[in-house]
Amino acid sequence: MKRLILTLAALCAPYSAIAAEKVELSSDVYVEKVSHDANGRKSVVLEKPLKVVPGDRLVFILKYRNVGDRTAENFVVTNPMPSAVAFQETLDGTELVSIDGGKNWGRLKDLRVRMGSGYRDAVPEDVTHIRWNINDDISAGSQGKLTFRGVVR
């Protein structure tokens, strides 16, 4: 049985190779459950959530993989924040963010929000979109992972 599946996979391979470069992107979300053991030690467990409540901390993991046989250039990943989730941070810190629905982009520390007649510094909760301009082109077979945190509003 196992051998049969391998054979089928081998048959399929040439079709994906027809598109010279082909990148796959997946999105996953986990909820961070903090628990304390009998000694008061804190442990954080990532659980696959079906249901969440306001205040829960979510970890979003995006995985990409060049499954083609040629390099994909200028690789950019964009994640619009779900409206019910307040952005917190990315793991790598290299992201650009938008606080106006994806029209303008910048580093969070450079963005300002109009408050009456003045401005305040943008805070993570203002973020509507996050984007990674992956510096390196991604060569055939290479893969990567992008992680960010948010809190259920």
Binding site: E21, L58, A72, N74, V77
Partner: peptide, 17 residues
Amino acid sequence: NIENTATASYDGPGGEV
């Protein structure tokens, strides 16, 4: 419902994908 979808773009021989 909290729904999350990421998008990606890159340049291939036939243009942006």
